[in-house]
Computed example of a mutant assay.
Amino acid sequence: MENGIYRQLQQYLHQLPCGFPEGPKGTDIALLKTMYTPEEAALCLRLTPEGQTAEAIALSHGGNVDTIRPMLDAMATRGLLFRIRIQETPHYVLMPYVVGTFEFQLNRLSPEYNKAHNRYMMDAMGMEVFGGKTSQFRILPVEAALEDTQTIMPHEKIRRYIEEARLIAVSDCLCRKKAQAEGRGCDHTLKACLSLNEFAEFYLEAGMPTEIISKEAALKLMEDCEKEGLVAHTQNAKDEVCYICNCCVCSCGIFSTVARFNLHSQIVRASWQCRIDPEACTACAACMERCIFNALSPGENGKMEVSRGKCMGCGLCKSACPSEAISLVQREKRFQPDVPADPQEMYDRMQAEKNRPLRMLSMKSLKARVSGQK
């Protein structure tokens, strides 16, 4: 009987654009059991991606708000739902697993959970994340590598997102922390993920390893991460992004999968690609060592060559080239990424492509919907 409530939760989460497919070996149920008690799973079935107050949840399902509210707050602290304050009132939001409750497990990386997550990703969730037409993830190029061009688009400027943010927090990288817990961690900077605005507020309220930083400190962090050879990525949207991560292939679940299984087309490239001047190239291979996507290799003449299919346009190779043989050039028009205007358009595209019944709302859409009800 206990498995029944978890099966209901799996089926409910799979109605979201981001999905939560059934695991062929029961790995989906095993994962959910490490996260939710049966009572929490039942309460999660009452949530919607549109967000509700504790009073509304209790009223619609005949529960006691004095019992339900503490449960909701406890679930928010454990990253099992998203809590957002709109007009000072907490609203509780059903979240997908990726990007969502998985990223909120910073304080709960137990061996049991990590093992269950890894098995489920291999059995079912990996295809959900990487098998869709519209990706949730987008590469952000190194701005310094593009400083000599006038054609860089606003949505490609990391500085813009930071300068426009109302609130910025830096958190431990979930992937590196998880890898360390599994005994396979790398030495890259741990505190390297930026959460913006409502995401920053949620991370702080949930007691995750997070601290508020200034815009100047955030820009310095991005500069240091670039020097360290980390690649920045964010939501696949031009505006209203909620996070900026600085990733490696050593620990990052997304980037390591892309590099290992040649899934370069499943994450949105920057609008740029690497070009190597063979006359200037000294075959030092500094760019090859710097590229985490295996896009560079020696050609027949020993000079470095680039694989267009693997180049993600991040720009790390250019900053590593001592002979200035590398430039970033715009991709041909037919290869330019079609980036959604905002997270709402991204979610709506995913929903239409997968024919899922539940509509995810961006932070802006969520606040607008709730404000319209007041």
Rank of each mutant, 00 (worst) to 15 (best):
G132W: 07
T282C: 06
Q105S: 10
N64C: 11
L59S: 13
F199Y: 09
L230H: 13
R159D: 08
F20Q: 01
P337S: 13
L80T: 06
C44Y: 10
V339I: 15
T53D: 09
S327V: 07
D338E: 15
L13T: 09
G131E: 11
P21G: 04
A325R: 05
A58H: 03
E211P: 00
T34M: 12
A280C: 05
Y6P: 08
M360S: 12
M208S: 03
Q180E: 08
G126T: 08
L194N: 09
E39I: 10
G126Q: 09
L361W: 00
A74M: 14
P90N: 11
M363V: 10
N236I: 06
G131P: 02
L263I: 01
A30K: 15
N246Q: 12
S195R: 08
M312W: 01
L106R: 02
D172V: 00
G51D: 03
M1K: 13
M222P: 00
D239T: 12
Y161F: 15
A259D: 05
C248M: 06
M75T: 13
E226L: 09
I276H: 01
Q373V: 10
M95C: 14
A42D: 10
S362P: 06
Q235E: 12
L16D: 06
N301E: 13
C247D: 08
A58M: 04
A54W: 14
S60T: 05
G299W: 15
M1F: 02
L59R: 13
L221R: 02
Y161I: 02
I213T: 03
I212A: 06
V258H: 02
K220V: 03
M1P: 09
A116G: 09
L13V: 05
R349I: 09
L47E: 06
E305L: 11
V142M: 05
A325C: 08
Q235C: 03
P343D: 03
R308F: 07
I267P: 00
Q10I: 02
V241N: 07
K33E: 14
Y97I: 01
S195Q: 11
R260Q: 12
L263A: 10
C245D: 09
M127I: 10
W272Q: 02
